[in-house]
């Protein structure tokens, strides 16, 4: 057996073992990884749309959203929004009523700098919701902007803008498409 085939075989065997081990680990951890994400989304929905009692998942032109229902009437929409932050995507969910007035915003996942951008989701001691996100309540989602409606976080202008701009863009797009 030539040296080349021998080397290839050894490397191949090691890679095969690694693949098997990883496949098993992936299957074992997959449900555990997805379960809290689903739960988080559900509890976020309730906190940003306290007036609704049920939610039904919909998609329109690749925008994922939930219809917020009170009994059988639609009272608003919870829109999945992805913003491009300082160091990665910011996944959030924004609740608006039928006129596009923001009822609440929740951040599901982000990787902003701790101590700076991460303050977009910081809860002050003794409070129940992040202080940055509270600013969004009652503002019109279609025209919301940093400086005018939202005070940016010191040292984290990019993160603050990313959240605000993404909400404005996605919600506005969805609402105008729904009206048509």
């Amino acid at each position: 057996m030539s040296q080349l085939t021998k080397f290839g075989l050894i490397l191949g065997v090691i890679c095969l073992t690694a693949t098997l081990v990883l496949a098993v680990t992936y299957e074992v951890t997959k449900p555990k990884i997805e379960e809290p994400l689903k739960k988080e989304e559900q509890s976020a929905l309730k906190s940003i749309m306290p007036s609704a009692d049920s939610f039904s998942e919909k998609t329109l032109d690749e925008i994922g959203y939930f219809e917020a229902l009170k009994g059988k009437t639609v009272v608003g929409y919870c829109v999945r929004v992805v913003g491009s932050g300082y160091s990665g995507y910011i996944r959030m969910i924004a609740g608006v009523d039928l006129n596009g007035i923001i009822q609440g915003v929740a951040i599901l996942e982000h990787s902003e700098t701790p101590g700076l951008g991460a303050k977009i989701n910081e809860i002050r001691p003794g409070e129940s919701e992040p202080w940055f996100l509270r600013q969004f309540k009652g503002k019109n989602a279609g025209i919301i902007a940093v400086k005018r409606d939202i005070d940016a976080i010191t040292g984290a202008t990019i993160s603050s803008k990313a959240v605000t701009d993404a909400i404005r863009k996605t919600v506005d797009e969805l609402l105008s498409k729904l009206k048509r």
Partner: peptide, 25 residues
């Protein structure tokens, strides 16, 4: 078992496997 000449790729595969396990868990 691992020959000198292909040791680095072998080590990398082993390390990457353990890192992915740690990451998933």
């Amino acid at each position: 078992i691992v020959p000198e000449k292909v040791r680095i790729p072998c080590f990398i595969v082993v390390i990457a496997t353990f890192v992915t396990i740690a990451d998933l868990f």
